[in-house]
Nucleic acid binder design. Structure first.
Length: 645
RNA sequence: GCUGGCGUAGCUCAAAGGUAGAGCGGCUGAUUUGUAAUCAGCAGGUUGCGGGUUCAAGUCCCACCGCCAGCUCCA
């Protein structure tokens, strides 16, 4: 048979040759630092798998995502083996590899405590040192059932019963431990370099909260101590950037037990940043043909019945309040209000598209356990907008939204995105609202808009909500983490429920398309992301305080105030540190506040009408005239600098 | 909501059933200082809230509120 190395030449091998031998023969390094597994005709296979027919091989190392998965999956088996040894009564759940690590779910009456984690870790080291080979075995169902029944592994039994009966069950054996597993795995436990257990948390069996809760142990594994250390440092860096800590330290926002969970308060500093973002948002929307709306926070329950929210969104809505004997509900969304504005008079095809935006504050019930700083709250302001358009305008409108979204995000320093297109499940078209043609048109428009932007995206069939196909854009921050950002949905629900129409050039009523979109998501969440992205050190145009004037002695106070007044008149946000402290102290304080520029003024500067410029990252930049500093600040702040702050 | 952990001064953290403390921050005073912390003094607390056990509770028990790590869900 012919076996070709991806991108290389083909060679002849006897059928049944193992992947490891073929790779070695083709000059690929096989081992813990080389190939860990391989893709055989696009399918991940272990090194001990045999190749029986012509094939193309691509070696997988730890650098490949699939290689990491194999590596860490083996680590999860080692974890399970260690736990089984140390805690005989424990029952096994599942244990996959995940991004950056792995976990294994266990059933045990007593909780795992941190001291036990280090014991388990030691046992894992022993298992790695023992270098047990992992042996793949195919057995028939009954044998597999007998094996796990004998050990009381009821979760495994449940899994086996659900496996396709036509396919043999595979087990992986390593020393005294055998697990049900599809594999593939590393050839032996000794291939693992450095493992580390991180946390324990509860997890429902099969992700179903009605079922038993297991204990999930999270860990990670790397080829060597160095790489593990780098990863732990990365985790440390993420902790250092935590917006909850920075928000407190930099006095951006706060939460209060007295107010209630998930309800944020913006302090003056945070308020500045938020206002800057909102001002930028508004002017960019006006520039792109949007109008701005304002709508109330409450509406009668009837409205939410008409919109359908009482049917499918009630769990996220707060209890009704009685006003003069009529039920009112706090809004979880802005759309019904915008729809009513659309309906306030007849609409002509000539005035479409209508692009209506609102920074609308909505309230949604979130279960207490999911709240998380600004990233998950119960009251938040969406940068919402609805576009009403004709079918022939749909694609251009979606294109425009994606363009706006990318422009906005890039303005905030996000350069990398992951785009997903959620469409209908082609098998079950009946469970969706709206017409077949409508869906086809909408999905085509979304897809075409992404193509025109040259974006690579994942098409996810069956991921669309019942009333709308959508585009989701995830932004990737400075640490490589992904956050849900813009979404664009084509709504088939509201136009029907509110019987929206416009008069066409034929004089007859037509149903408009309604696009629901947000480009930042929610102000709270976006600010949270932004704080972490910049580690609290906002770029000049967004910094709540852009420059701090630091007089050397009290004698320069008057001059310092003059400098501040000049910068302030030019629209810059400045403060004078008037405390009687040494310059080092003031610099340190300004530095910790992450103020972009420190302008030191002493006797010399006061004489020469200059300032000594210090940048928070670059350090001392030397003496400049005030005009030079103003020009430099304007240049750096860029087009979004506002003269009239 | 569930599992586990936590809640002491504005912040970070001590006090292992026996008198609530430190550093930073704040205030006052002295110092008038040249690129990441000058010195001294003072103030600051119903130990998240409410019950209970005990001669005695920050510490033990119960309930609630909030926070943290996850599960599930989402902007």
């Amino acid at each position: 048979m012919q076996v070709r190395l991806a991108g290389g030449t083909a060679r002849e091998f006897a059928p049944g040759t193992r992947v490891a031998e073929i790779l070695t023969a083709l000059g690929v390094e096989v081992g813990p630092r080389g190939a860990l597994a391989a893709e055989v005709n696009g399918r991940v296979a272990g090194l001990d798998a045999t190749v029986d027919a012509d094939a193309e091989l691509r070696p997988l190392t730890f650098q490949d995502e699939a290689g990491q998965e194999v590596y860490r999956h083996t680590a999860s088996h080692v974890l399970a083996q260690a736990v089984t040894r140390l805690f005989p009564g424990v029952r096994l759940g599942i244990g996959p590899a995940i991004t950056d690590g792995f976990y294994y779910d266990f059933h045990r009456e007593e909780p795992f405590v941190p001291e036990e984690l280090s014991r388990i870790e030691q046992e894992m080291e022993a298992i790695i040192a023992a270098d047990y080979p992992l042996q793949r075995e195919e057995v028939d169902r009954d044998e597999a059932l007998r094996h796990f029944a004998a050990r009381g592994e009821r979760f495994k039994l449940e899994l086996i019963r659900e496996l396709d009966p036509a396919v043999p069950v595979t087990l992986y054996r390593q020393g005294d431990f055998t697990d049900l597993c599809a594999g593939p795995h590393l050839p032996s436990t000794g291939w693992l370099g450095a493992v580390k257990l991180l946390t324990v948390a509860g997890a429902y069996w099969r992700g179903d909260e009605k079922r038993e809760q297991l204990q999930r142990i999270y860990g990670t594994a790397f080829p060597d101590r160095q790489a593990l250390k780098r990863h732990l440092e990365w985790l440390e860096e993420a902790r250092r950037r935590d917006h909850r800590t920075l928000g407190k330290d930099l006095e951006l926002f706060s939460f209060h037990e007295e107010i209630g969970a998930g309800l944020a308060c913006w302090h003056p500093r945070g308020g500045r940043v938020r206002q800057l973002i909102e001002d930028f948002w508004r002017s960019e929307h006006r520039r792109r043909g949007y109008e701005i709306l304002f709508t109330p926070h409450l509406a009668r329950a009837d409205l939410w019945a008409t919109s359908g929210h009482l049917g499918w969104y009630r769990d996220n809505m707060y209890s009704p309040m009685d006003i003069d004997g009529v039920e009112y509900l706090i809004k979880p969304m802005n759309c019904p209000f915008h729809v009513l504005i659309y309906k306030s008079r007849t609409r002509s095809y000539r005035e479409l598209p209508l692009r209506w935006g609102e920074l609308g504050t909505v309230y949604r019930y979130e279960r207490s356990g999911v709240l998380h700083g600004l990233l998950r709250v119960r009251g938040f302001t969406q940068d919402d907008a609805h576009i009403f358009c004709r079918p022939d305008q749909l694609e251009d409108e979606v294109y425009g939204v994606v363009d706006l979204a990318l422009f906005m995000l890039r303005s905030f320093g996000f350069e990398h995105f992951e785009v997903a297109l959620s469409v209908r499940d082609p098998q079950r078209k009946d469970k969706y609202l709206g017409s077949d043609e409508g869906w086809e048109r909408a999905e085509a428009a979304l897809e075409a808009a992404l193509r025109r932007h040259g974006l690579t995206y994942r098409r996810e069939e069956g991921e669309a909500v019942f009333y709308a196909p959508k585009i989701d854009i995830k932004l990737i921050d400075a640490l490589g983490r992904g956050w849900q950002g813009p979404t664009v949905q084509v709504d088939f629900n509201l136009p029907e429920r509110f019987d929206l129409s416009y008069t066409g050039d034929d004089g007859r009523p037509h149903r408009p398309f309604m696009i629901h979109r947000t480009v930042l998501g929610a102000m709270e969440r976006f600010l949270g992301n932004l704080i972490e992205h910049y580690a609290g050190a906002f770029p000049l145009w967004l910094a709540p305080v852009q420059a701090k004037i630091l007089p050397i002695t009290d004698r320069q106070l008057g001059y310092a105030r003059e400098v501040a007044a000049r910068l302030s008149a030019a629209g810059f946000r400045v403060e004078v540190d008037e405390r009687t402290e040494k310059i080092g102290y003031k610099i340190r304080a300004a530095q910790l506040e992450k103020v972009p520029y420190m302008l030191v003024v002493g006797e010399r500067e006061a004489q020469g009408n200059t300032v000594s410029v210090r940048h928070r990252r670059e350090g001392d930049l030397g003496v400049s005239s005030i005009d030079t500093v103003l020009a430099m600040l304007k240049e750096e702040a860029g087009p979004r600098h506002r003269e009239a702050w």
